[in-house]
Amino acid sequence: MPIFRKPFLKNIVSKTREMPEGLWTKCPSCSEVIHNLALEENLRICPKCEHHFTMGSKERIASLIDEGTFEETDAKMTSVDTLEFKGVATYTNRLKSYQDKTGLTDAVITGTGKIDGKPVGIAVMDFSFLAATMGSVVGEKITRIIELSTKKKMGVVIVCASGGARMYEGMLSLMQMAKTSGALARHAEARLPYLTVLTNPTTAGVMASYASLGDVLIAEPKSMIGFAGPRVIKETTHQDLPPGFQTAEFLEKHGLIDIVASRTKLRGVISQLLDYLAPATK
């Protein structure tokens, strides 16, 4: 596991004194100031308190999939403003600005690859693109990778993160919940494993569809996971929220999450589960 290569880190730290501010990140949990390269090297986990920072989809794939085995699917698929959404900003403009900012086409990367030699279909959502909201592109790419995995008799791993459905696509975005869940029904009928990794935050429409449907639900520590947002719940119920409400650990205790796994253990956990659940490869 590529976790914490000491010599490399030492190099960085010794050079850091004269480095400009933009290269450092302050941990929101323990206030430790961490060098960005050190953070990347440590899978974006705070070395002091193990706070899991948001991880980009490309880095995630690199951390999970055997080097050189990833083949991206539907890399060029992009969203369209079907509703001609007239809001404060147009949907087309928002898409463009997020594409420029992130270098991504939309909020999910899908493809096939191997994990310790075992072939899988994989989808990784990227929170930096419009809060990883699910529109037609996210729904279609995820449905296609599930269908391809069913056809090729492979397990599927979906790394989730999402603010919910993408309002700009109206009901077309809501229908992606039915579409993806339907594809999973067929994948399940073929007795193929589906592993879900819930990362911070996974909520609303995505949580109420494929994110909840894994044979095994794995969550990263302290991830916020739920259907409704805490503010909406407070406003609706005028109730105090219990401590740790909607965290991975809370949901583990309440019977939803199978395994809370640190990012450093994730690949190993998935690999082991695939050994048990995936059909033997030729």
């Binding site: 919940m177 039915a178 869940s181 339907g182 999973l184 029904a185 399940a188 609303a204 949580m207 109420a208 569809s209 494929y210 994110a211 909840s212 449907l213 739920g226 259907f227 409704a228 947002g229 909406v232 719940i233 609706t236 119920t237 109730q239 929220l241 219990p242 409400f245 909607q246 949901l251 309440h254 019977g255 939803l256």
Partner: peptide, 21 residues
């Protein structure tokens, strides 16, 4: 669907997701 503490504790998102599937 109801946004409440009990609904979340008993996994309303999962209940909806399973119905869709």
């Amino acid at each position: 669907a109801y946004p409440g503490v009990g609904a979340e504790e008993r996994h309303i998102a999962e209940a909806i997701a399973v119905n869709l599937r």
